[in-house]
């Protein structure tokens, strides 16, 4: 495991994070910008680099506990993807297609949060081809309802679809930007569509005009 909380690895991971920040042109977020406790970061999704960019920009305390949530169907398709997802990114893999009680995608996410991890989720469900923000799937609402006190932090990523677009494997070193919004507070009586609209709006508001 390259990404992780073990002390022996922290120097390597610091170095890797600095290299990713240099490569994508994003700055290290200051500690004050984020809650200290485990939280759910929700971001727009347009590139395979999205998780690595957020991971690298997080201050070390959050970086060491954060895990991406990713689709099992995609990330278990080849041995390379599986190695990247499980060993390198330490991802929480969830079922997207044949959801049953036994493969409930919520359970591993809640378990990770309870174990002290922060999560990165992409509520659009998949990568956007043109970089435009797509409608949210309802997963974010299920997660928020299951752990209503966990802060929900919106993160907007700009330009990553140009750096490494969907369907290509060669990155182009343009400058990405990363914007963090104020945490959302879950309200148990708010209807699901309203909550999802509010979350979508909070993320869209971080987009540069």
């Amino acid at each position: 495991m390259i990404f992780g909380a073990t002390d022996g690895m922290s120097f390597t991971s610091e170095l890797l994070a600095a290299a990713i920040r240099l490569g994508c042109g994003v700055r290290l977020l200051p500690d004050e910008a984020l809650p200290v406790a485990p939280c759910v970061f929700f971001a727009n999704h347009s590139s395979h680099l999205d998780f690595a960019t957020i991971w690298a920009a997080l201050p070390p305390a959050q970086r060491h506990r954060v895990r991406p949530v990713a689709g099992r169907d995609y990330w278990e398709k080849t041995p390379l993807r599986r190695w990247l997802a499980v060993r390198v990114f330490h991802a929480v893999l969830i079922e997207r297609q044949k959801v049953t009680v036994a493969t409930n995608p919520l359970a591993p996410m809640v378990a990770a949060l309870d174990a002290g991890a922060s999560l990165i989720v992409f509520p659009e469900g998949t990568r956007s081809a043109d970089g435009k923000l797509q409608p949210f799937k309802s997963g974010l609402h299920h997660l928020a309802r299951a752990r209503p006190t966990t802060p929900l932090v919106p993160i907007f990523l700009d330009n990553l679809n140009r750096i490494l677009p969907k369907g290509d494997f060669l990155p182009v070193p343009l400058v990405a930007t990363l914007a963090v919004g104020a945490p959302l507070v879950f309200d148990a009586v708010e209807p699901k569509p309203d909550f999802l609209a509010r979350a979508h709006h909070a993320l869209a508001a971080l987009q540069r005009p």
């Binding site: 679809n161 140009r162 060669l170 182009v172 070193p173 343009l174």
Partner: peptide, 26 residues
Amino acid sequence: SFFALREFLTLTPTRPADHRALFWAF
């Protein structure tokens, strides 16, 4: 040149079809 090109092309709208041309440029 590399860093200047990076700043310039970040500001310049291109389309997904230009991705490989940009890769060659850099």
